[in-house]
Design a binder for these strands. Structure first.
Ligand SMILES: [Zn+2]
Ligand SMILES: [Zn+2]
Ligand SMILES: [Zn+2]
Ligand SMILES: [Zn+2]
Lengths: 134, 134
DNA sequence: AAACATTATGTTATAGTATTACAAATCAAA
DNA sequence: TTTGATTTGTAATACTATAACATAATGTTT
């Protein structure tokens, strides 16, 4: 028997295609960009992409970047904490981070105002280290 | 002379209409909801709304909620820190907060990764205190 | 295997959000 | 009052996301 509570569930064909396309891109892609990438694999309608993305998010393999209308692969799908995304204005690269101070801040702010947090979004736009090496 | 560096600039007609509509709503509104509200005042096209919103954001009188595709009036347009929005899943009420721990967290995380932050987005979805009084 | 339920997929149409392009009107100096 | 800059009006279009319905594949029970 498997000691790991949640073994990686087998992905469907479309989910696998979308996940691979996202991983291969090296940066976030929008739904229609994904559709274009996957037309060669038989995708014909946006719904095929959106459905796969919904399921991949449910499985925590992919995150949606709200401020970009785009999706990116999770860097470590076992994490519990709220991911923090740093988004470079210049090159478009996005990096995923975890930060105890930020997670605690979300919780304590919520507690102070009687709010029960469920899903948090932290996205930082700015300039990455590479692009800052002017 | 005015000791206050940036006196409140006079708003144009459309900016005033949009700001008042947002303030009157008591909760965030989308661009097309604003358009509908303002049809009685002569608005006929989405661009009238989007243009006014862009300028109001520039003036820091309004914030965009990225995860809702909606806009809300700023609670105190003099603030320097990143606003934190708590968004109730049940009643839709949104409250704006400031939090030193979160602001510091953004800065220190950025510094550690050589990132220069420019604009940060923090939006917490969950259940507000009122809706939690079940 | 046959019947049934469940899940995944295909396809078309439509809804919702945002911007481009160009014309007209307004406003503020010079 | 001419000029130039800003604001506004309007139509067309682009981009993003979902609804509705049909078909196919899969799994489970009998
Ligand atoms: Zn992740
Ligand atoms: Zn960069
Ligand atoms: Zn504010
Ligand atoms: Zn509530």
């Amino acid at each position: 028997m498997n000691r790991h509570a949640s073994a990686k569930p087998k992905l469907t064909r479309n989910q696998t295609l979308v996940l691979d396309a996202l991983a291969g891109a090296g940066q976030p892609l929008g739904a229609y960009a994904l559709l274009d990438v996957l037309r060669g694999h038989g995708f014909k309608a946006p719904l095929q992409v959106y459905r796969a993305l919904d399921q991949l998010i449910e499985l925590k393999l992919v995150h949606r970047l709200e401020s970009l209308n785009a999706w990116t692969v999770c860097c470590d799908n076992h994490h519990k904490d709220t991911p923090v995304f740093a988004i470079c204005n210049d090159c478009g690269v996005v990096t995923e981070h975890f930060d105890t101070q930020l997670s605690n801040g979300i919780n304590s702010l919520s507690e102070r105002s009687g709010f029960v947090p469920d899903r948090s979004i932290i996205e930082i736009h700015g300039q990455c280290d590479k692009c800052g090496d002017a």
